[in-house]
């Protein structure tokens, strides 16, 4: 049941990211909703579920976006697995944790992406990429991660109660 809800959520967030959020750009950047979902699920559910949702979101991003297939899948899979390790340390999840991990995850993901897609081919300055693309996306995603995390915690709690009954 949870798997189905996460899948539906991933599909809806992908559709929102490519349509509504295109018009809701902040400083030219769009929020990375898929990455926010991976971070929030990994923090609340641990490495295994985090990795699984990372793989799912990565595959959807690869299918729907441009670029070499598999790159997003690998990056998001490992993001989910790595952040999931911290779920036990922050069992009383607070918004600030989601903000910090979102910034860290989006920054690392974009830096790796920039390095392999642009930097090694000599297509654009690193300073521009960091200040005009990566940092605005990190901050925007971090802001989105807070309500998204609350939504996921609420969904988890609701499903847990239902399961106990």
């Amino acid at each position: 049941m949870k798997g189905l809800i996460y899948t539906v959520l991933a599909v809806i967030l992908c559709a929102l990211q490519t349509t509504v959020f295109e018009t809701l750009r902040v400083f030219g950047a769009r929020a990375n909703l898929m990455m926010a979902l991976v971070v929030c699920v990994a923090l609340t559910r641990g490495s295994f579920v985090g990795g699984a949702i990372g793989l799912l979101c990565g595959l959807i991003t690869d299918v729907m976006g441009y670029g070499t297939f598999g790159v997003n899948s690998i990056l998001m899979l490992y993001t989910g697995v790595c952040i999931g390790f911290f779920s036990f340390k922050f069992y009383r999840i607070r918004g600030i944790v989601a903000v910090i991990f979102s910034i860290f995850a989006v920054f690392t993901y974009n830096l790796i992406y920039y390095f392999f897609v642009y930097y090694i081919w000599g297509k654009g300055g690193m300073w521009f990429a960091i200040t005009k693309i990566i940092i605005p996306e990190c901050l925007y995603t971090a802001v989105i991660a807070v309500p998204l995390q609350k939504l996921i915690i609420a969904v988890n709690r609701h499903l847990d109660i239902k399961q106990e009954r």
Partner: peptide, 11 residues
């Protein structure tokens, strides 16, 4: 109907 999901490409 949709733009690319990330900020890196213009597709």
């Amino acid at each position: 109907i949709a733009k690319d999901s990330g900020n890196w490409f213009n597709s």
